[in-house]
């Protein structure tokens, strides 16, 4: 009896979590996959849904608007994740030092992450407002011409990149700080005894030891960057033209403006596949869960 209970106990312990994940994550995903085979719009009875098979996927793969949004998303994700990893890691290494007032700085630095994304979008929309925004006020004070930040494709893209970096670099800082605090101090002491310079300690000891944390952090940010919606929704709504129309925003517009929920679901499934492939590629490069002895 005791043996049976011992054998079952992991299932009892993991069961509730699996159930919650199944209901909260898997069920909507499966419903989205199901919906992608139908033509249906919100408000219509499900009985009126029309079976389309794979045609929505075929359409998505040749739709110039989808491909454009995918390219915008990939470029956006590549820039913001790279920038956030570099800036976040550098700031974490600075904040690791025990100097006066560092706790206050840490608190200030992580605050952007706590702001709701839609509010972040509104804040940055104000910052980049052509007429009254602080960005142009600063340029004018410096004797430079004011810019139409959100009306110029390149500047608007820059604006969404800056807002994402502002909001999510703190996440990288927290992850790297946590990783730094768990580093094996004996390795660091050994490096110092061997005469390593601070730069060498960072590049040759700390960063290699942090690599599992960095990979997981980059992966989480990459997945998030591919799902970015609210900030761009409030900041540019994809414009000017479609210069900042990332794939999640295109999916949103297709679903709720165009009322093509089936087609939007098909694009969502394709996005899921892209993110899954990128995640696998990242893990293939460095899998923190892999036993190093293998």
């Amino acid at each position: 009896m005791k043996q049976i209970l011992d054998r079952l106990s992991p299932y009892f312990l993991a069961g509730p979590a699996v159930l919650v994940i199944g209901v909260a994550c898997l069920y909507p995903t499966l419903m989205a996959v199901r919906l992608s085979f139908y033509k249906w719009s919100l408000g219509d009875p499900w009985s009126s849904a029309q079976w389309l098979g794979l045609s929505a996927f075929r359409q998505a793969l040749t739709d110039p608007a989808v491909l454009h949004s995918l390219i915008v998303t990939v470029v956006f994700a590549a820039i913001v994740v790279s920038a956030e990893m570099v800036i976040g890691t550098a700031l974490a290494l600075l904040m690791e030092r025990q100097v006066a007032g560092i706790s206050l700085f840490r608190t200030i630095f992580i605050m952007p992450m706590m702001v709701a994304p839609i509010v972040v979008g509104m804040i940055w929309r104000y910052v980049f407002d052509t007429q009254f925004g602080p960005a142009n006020a600063l340029l004018t004070a410096l004797g430079l011409p004011a810019q139409s930040w959100l009306a110029n494709p390149s500047l608007a893209f820059l604006a969404v990149v800056v807002s994402d970096i502002w909001q999510w670099t703190p996440f990288v800082i927290i992850m790297v700080l946590a990783g730094l605090q768990n580093l094996d101090q004996s390795a660091l002491e050994a490096a110092q005894i061997d005469g390593a310079t601070p730069r060498q300690v960072i590049l040759r000891v700390k960063l290699p030891m942090l690599m599992p944390v960095l990979v997981i952090t980059a992966l989480m940010r990459l997945i998030d960057a591919f799902r970015v919606l609210e900030v761009i929704f409030a900041l540019t709504f994809g414009g000017p033209g479609s210069a900042t129309e990332v794939l999640p925003l295109h999916i949103y517009k297709t679903a709720f403006v165009g009322q093509q929920l089936g087609y939007a679901s098909a694009i969502s499934v394709l996005l899921l596949v892209v993110v899954f492939a990128l995640s696998l590629a990242t893990l293939a490069l460095s899998n923190p869960l892999k036993d190093p002895r293998q």
Partner: peptide
């Protein structure tokens, strides 16, 4: 018409905006 939202928001509104920014 019921299709107007899609035409308005996703087609005319995007393409004409490209003309406004000189694209």
């Amino acid at each position: 018409i019921p299709e107007w939202g899609r035409i308005d928001e996703q087609i005319l509104g995007v393409k004409i905006n490209e003309a406004l920014i000189g694209s």
